[in-house]
Design a protein around this nucleic acid. Structure first.
Lengths: 277, 277
DNA sequence: CGAATCTTTGAACTGAGTCAATTAAAGTGG
DNA sequence: CCACTTTAATTGACTCAGTTCAAAGATTCG
């Protein structure tokens, strides 16, 4: 119960930007720890105790940075609605996108190591997060095992995400990377009960490009190529997967894997010719 | 205390490979939770209680796989001595290296999400790990807050590592990636009290290449280039950083970051000419 | 000492980065 | 509500860094 009480009353010191009354800023709602457990993928851990633990929600306007890089960890956040990109900025000011977060994903976990966030979280659209004040969260998790499990679960899931992102990048060709990205995105949408076919990308091509470590023009070209092959249809940021099986077949070919002798690696090229009418 | 007792007596069912008496297999030693806390970077949390919690250590022979992909989570492991590579294998059998673990790093954390490991851990040399049986660990962490903090800390650190790995890959040129890799490796060695200048790489060029998402020949060439520029000296897997400042200056140039108008990106090329005598 | 693996180097080809220019979309302000 | 600005997206042309293929040393290990 401490969690919700401490937040609204005496928060303000750190965030600084705090304009109550505006559509974009705090504008707080509430939910329970049970909601959080359900959204995070642990519905079976919701209980009377977690029902009794109220939590605050916070609105985050599009483009707004919820978590700043190098900021000390004040809280972790669970995405209730909307979406975010997680980024790292290097010395030269290049913004590297580490991944995207949607409903049920936790933000800020990488700060648990040294209590400083090593990546930022920026809202891609008007979004809502559940605020989990960090020190209080740790304290509570000692008393409420479900909360502890939540943290572990979320950390594990986040690590898997990052592993998967690296898998996307490991693909040889840009076309394969984009194909994998779309399939992964569809997969995640499905897990949230959305359509597996019709995707609405909330991020720019540039963000996707950064995440896949290619130039943004290349993402554009890859999408065009996939359209030409009949895998997908694209209208701005709306992507429809018209031929999932074909798209699946493109996410092969990994580069640098001349294992043994017999490696049929002409897939991409072959498919291209086969389908250019 | 349950931790150590459960492990040796009634483990055996899953690992299957179990040949007591051989140099390579279990051959167990012991340590305390305090040791683990210290090694993991949380010395301040060591206490009388953690002193009283004995844990088993296990030897892992070079090349041996400690954690298998898709295996259900039996335990987490802390690297006490030696080193590991963490890998993911895709459908085509291509082994993608996600990162390397040395003394103080935790293995198996990404399994906390769904209790199945999503990456494997393979010893690069004869190594020793502390075994932290998972269900027992969770149980104990409810009673011993320090253990809980350990898990959170380790998860945070691991996430940072993966973020850093992506930073390595985000570099435009292979030379930059390798430079960053060496500097990062030196950094980690330093944190463990080893020399910051003299590195002994335990992994093959191929492993490094996989981790950096380039061909192994390219790693070779990049190293040769760095030697030619006087940054480093290389003898097999021993690398000496002869000019840290120069090496630092090479880890710039990020690609895809044509921010604003004035972006001086000729660094790599310029430096090459300037130093080819 | 030979087999296997790792590492380096060479040569040729190509995918993707870069630059550039056009079009489309989304804000902005009068 | 419409001109105006700004940002996003697409497409083309050119170039080159890095992959691929090949082959020769070096190192490790049985």
């Amino acid at each position: 119960m401490q969690l919700a009480q401490t937040t609204p009353a005496r928060t303000t010191p750190a965030p600084a930007i705090h304009a109550p009354g505006l559509l974009s800023e705090p504008v707080i709602g509430r939910c329970t720890a049970s909601d959080v457990l359900r959204w995070a993928g642990l519905p079976q851990l919701a209980s009377a105790e977690s029902d009794a633990l109220p939590l605050w929600q916070r609105r985050v306007a599009a483009e707004q940075t919820l978590v700043h890089e190098d900021q000390s960890v004040q809280a972790l956040y669970l995405v209730a609605a909307g979406s975010f990109k997680c980024t790292q900025t290097d010395l030269e000011g290049y913004e590297q996108v580490l991944g995207f977060a949607i409903h049920g994903d936790m933000l800020g976990l990488d700060g648990m190591g040294d209590l400083h966030h090593s990546s930022a979280a920026v809202a891609l659209e008007d979004s809502t997060v559940v605020v989990l004040p960090y020190p209080e969260l740790l304290q509570m998790s000692q008393q409420l095992p479900a909360l502890n499990a939540l943290l572990h679960h979320a950390a594990g899931v986040e690590l898997q995400h990052r592993g998967h992102t690296q898998y996307l990048i490991s693909a040889a060709s840009a076309e394969v990377r984009v194909a994998r990205f779309l399939l992964h995105f569809a997969q995640r949408q499905l897990a949230q009960g959305h359509s597996q076919r019709r995707l609405h990308l909330r991020m720019t091509r540039r963000d996707i490009a950064s995440c896949l470590c290619v130039a943004h023009e290349t993402v554009s070209r890859a999408l065009t190529a996939l359209v030409a092959q009949g895998c997908i249809r694209v209208c701005n940021r709306d992507v429809e997967i018209t031929d999932p099986a074909l798209l699946q077949s493109m996410q092969r070919v990994t580069r640098g894997a001349p294992r043994r002798k017999g490696h049929a690696q002409g897939t991409a090229g072959t498919a291209r010719f086969a389908l250019t009418q």
